[in-house]
Computed example of a mutant assay.
Amino acid sequence: MNAAIRPVRPDDAPALRAVERDAGQRFRSVGLKAIADNEPTSEAFIAAILAHGVAFCAVDSEDAPIGFVLAGRLDHALHIYEVSVATPFGGQGIGRSLVAAAEQAARESGIHALTLATFRDVPWNRPFYERLGFVEVETIDWTPAFHLLHAAERLSGLPIERRLFMRKEIL
């Protein structure tokens, strides 16, 4: 499918939450029921990203969001907080297009790296990002912000032993 990519608008927030809720259901198959049952990203966080970060959505022929990426500046990189694609549209290159849009936005802002946190053992997480050129950031190389994000993930109940940070240098 050739989905169009456009900036997220404030009125897209409920649709983004629905996409995330749908995409999260896949985590049941890899023993992460808590992710599937978790409340999606808040509208307040989406509004904060719209005001201070980067947000793109993939839309269908009727301009309805079917995927999205939310990112913001963290340290000296653009940190991807969320990439979600609705289940019926998975495996069609939409996630790749959304990450490419974030990368282009970083490049245009003079930012030379993308970062993210993901699951090391989920087939559609780490391997997907590795194919896009991301590499694991070893714990010894974590920035203070990574340590804070890691602590927040632990407090939220994520299985932190399954998590890693990744980075991609961009030109």
Rank of each mutant, 00 (worst) to 15 (best):
W142H: 07
E136A: 04
A145Q: 14
R167A: 05
L155A: 14
G53F: 05
H52T: 14
A58H: 02
S61L: 09
N125T: 04
N38K: 10
F165P: 03
C57F: 14
P159Y: 10
I46C: 06
I170N: 02
A44Y: 11
G31D: 05
G133Q: 08
H150D: 15
A47W: 07
E82T: 12
N38Y: 11
I111C: 04
R73W: 05
F89N: 05
Q104F: 09
L132S: 01
V83G: 06
A106T: 15
A117F: 14
G67S: 08
Y81K: 05
L171A: 14
A101E: 11
V135N: 11
N125E: 03
A36S: 08
A58T: 01
I111P: 02
G133I: 04
V99Q: 10
V54K: 13
R107G: 08
V85L: 13
A152D: 14
I66R: 00
G90V: 09
I80Q: 01
V122G: 02
L164P: 06
R73E: 15
V30L: 08
I49A: 07
A58Y: 04
I160T: 05
F119E: 00
I94P: 03
H150L: 14
H79T: 09
A44R: 10
L164M: 15
P65R: 02
L98N: 03
V137Y: 06
F89M: 10
D121S: 08
D75Y: 08
I170C: 00
L32H: 14
L149I: 13
D121M: 11
L148Q: 13
S61I: 12
I160N: 03
F45S: 03
I160F: 01
F119P: 00
H147P: 01
Q92R: 03
R126D: 13
F134K: 05
F68T: 05
L32G: 08
S42G: 09
V83W: 07
A102M: 11
H112R: 11
V59P: 02
R28M: 03
I80W: 03
A86Y: 00
H52C: 06
